[in-house]
């Protein structure tokens, strides 16, 4: 199992902004259950500013910790600012992630972008996009396999 630092553990054990949102202005769902992580982001936007943000995540500790950190980082920010958030920013704010867990932070970045895209479509009166469940896992970003336990 991966070795996480204290910040990651803290974010995993006490994540912020957890749960679904009633009548959100935008929803983004990314990831793939086959790969072991799916993230759903809900936005409430007022005057192009993220007034509230929530997440629901199926995934490992790193996926939950990055969900919490990413939502914390964009809460209260403008849409433009939120779109500048990168997976590196999220990983750095958590004090770093084990190499094989970097793909989890990518999911946070993608989740927020997908939610913003959905918000924009809705404000133009367009229908919501379906969840973006990538057909392939981010294999190239995974670290080498660790020794097996038994």
């Amino acid at each position: 199992m991966s070795m996480y630092n204290e910040k990651v553990i803290a974010a995993f054990m006490n994540p912020k902004n957890v749960g679904a949102m009633e009548n959100p202005d935008g929803v983004g769902e990314v990831g793939n259950a086959t790969c072991g992580d799916v993230m759903k982001i809900y936005l409430r936007v007022k005057d192009e500013r993220i007034e509230d943000i929530r997440f629901e995540t199926f995934g490992c500790a790193a996926a939950i910790a990055t969900s919490s950190m990413a939502t914390e980082m964009v809460k209260g920010r403008t849409i433009e600012e939120a779109l500048k958030l990168t997976n590196r920013d999220v990983a750095n704010a958590l004090g770093g992630l084990p190499p094989e867990k970097i793909h989890c932070s990518l999911l946070a970045e993608e989740g927020i972008r997908a939610a913003v895209e959905d918000y924009r479509r809705r404000s133009q009166g367009l229908p919501s996009l379906p969840p973006r469940h990538e057909a392939v896992c981010h294999h190239d970003l995974a670290g080498s396999e660790e020794p097996r336990g038994d």
Partner: peptide
């Protein structure tokens, strides 16, 4: 997901294992 479960069990003093991808480092 299994790893999240294992970690929380670990904090509660229970040592378990899982066949989830995240516990092996593979996907």
């Amino acid at each position: 997901e299994g790893e999240a479960m294992l970690l929380r069990l670990d904090f509660a003093g229970i040592g378990a294992s899982s066949g989830s991808a995240c516990t092996s480092g593979s996907l």
